[in-house]
Amino acid sequence: MVRFMPHDHHHDHRHGAEDHAHALLPPDPALRVKALETILTAKGVIDPAALDVIIDTYETKIGPRNGAEVVARAWADPDFHARLMEDATPVVADLGFFGRQGEHIVAVENTAEVHNMVVCTLCSCYPWPLLGIPPAWYKSDAYRSRAVREPRKVLADFGVTLPEGKAVRVWDSTAEIRYLVIPERPAGTEGWDVERLAALVTRDSMIGTGLARVPEDAA
């Protein structure tokens, strides 16, 4: 007899007459994932411990703070900025932010003339090592279809109004190339160090659906 331990202990609460008599039954897709894990573990194709490490990494170690550090360094250090804009992949790898799927990271910079915005019209390609798991809206049909067609309207939905005449450039991510938007550095931050600057960099500002915080809001 083979015994398998489940990986999670968060079960779907179902309130029925027979409730609490037995362990709470997870939703159907959760059982299907367990079935896949059981089959692949028995075949030696996967290592359940490795799955837990991946989940832990994405839940606790990877998030938009990584990207914010990259942006803040680009603002504070002209040499770093130059290297990042030339080829971001090795530069962010030096900071310990590796693309697990071997993708290239491309930094696109907002200026007074152009605003950059990122989408994945195919599915949800996203710079995971820098921003973590994408928010639900990034994965939605609505965003994926509208970002290219009507980026200004999408920006307005996010509360971003750009000056007349500023161009909007939309970058469509692929499995091979992920984009990181470098937002414009807010005024009044001269001489700030990386840590202080990073606090102004929001996740949305690195997708291009937001702007960096201004110092007054961050205080």
Binding site: H7, D8, H10, P26, P27, P29, A30, V33, K34, L36, E37, L40, I46, D47, A50, L51, D52, I54, I55, Y58, E59, G63, R100, Q101, G132, I133, P135, A136, E195, R196, A198, A199, T202, R203, R213, D217, A218
Partner: peptide, 25 residues
């Protein structure tokens, strides 16, 4: 270093994380 954004849950349900991790693995 302080985030004023309300953090969103990384995965809305445990099985989302499991199927994601399984695919990455």
């Amino acid at each position: 270093g302080q985030m004023t954004d309300r953090p969103e849950p990384v995965f809305a349900a445990p099985w989302h994380a499991q199927v994601f991790a399984l695919t990455v693995h």
